[in-house]
């Protein structure tokens, strides 16, 4: 079950959604968030960026922070100045800080054809800012997307690490 408080983004109101972690609920949550952003009339590429990053973060919480019983996920989105700020909270296992801060194993060899491990690479490549904190058994991951202006994701692998 997905429960949302909906408001138009141009009214400077937050989008808040709480749901039980599951792949189908993640799909619903993304659909509702994109609906909230719809009035902003963002470029298709920017919408794709937002959906890719949030799908990866929410799937990670569903698959790794929680066990198969799932648990509560809270997502709050605000349009702030020239950006979209999204905060995702869960009460699952603590997120290992190295996932946010580093490129991990330093990329991979496409010939080895991995079937996983793409998620954090996509998140780090596409989010403008990432910050994680662990407070009172809650993970809190804050993601900022720059809105407006040209996007420069053509060479994300060469982009300097902002952390």
């Amino acid at each position: 079950m997905v429960w949302a408080e909906q408001a138009a983004p141009h009214e400077n109101a937050a989008f808040i959604i709480r749901f039980h972690a599951s792949p189908l609920n993640v799909r619903d949550a993304l659909r509702l968030l994109l609906g909230y952003l719809d009035p902003l009339d963002l470029p298709i590429d920017q919408v794709a960026t937002i959906q890719i990053v949030l799908a990866e973060v929410l799937n990670n919480v569903t698959e790794h922070a929680y066990d198969s019983d799932g648990g509560l996920i809270c997502m709050q989105a605000n349009v702030v100045e020239a950006g979209l700020s999204v905060t995702i909270r869960d009460r699952g296992a603590a997120l290992p800080p190295k996932l946010i801060l580093s490129e991990g194993s330093g990329g991979f060899d496409p010939q080895a054809l991995p079937e996983g491990g793409f998620g954090w690479h996509l998140i780090r490549s596409l989010a403008s800012e990432l910050a994680h904190c662990r407070q009172a058994r809650w993970n809190e991951l804050k993601i900022v997307f720059s809105l407006g202006g040209p996007q420069s994701d053509e060479l994300p692998l060469n982009r300097p690490n902002p952390f």
Partner: peptide, 16 residues
């Protein structure tokens, strides 16, 4: 689609 192509490009799977 553009969003799908983006995921393949960023993970370099477009070359595979």
């Amino acid at each position: 689609s553009p969003a799908v192509e983006k995921v393949f490009r960023l993970t370099r799977m477009d070359s595979v």
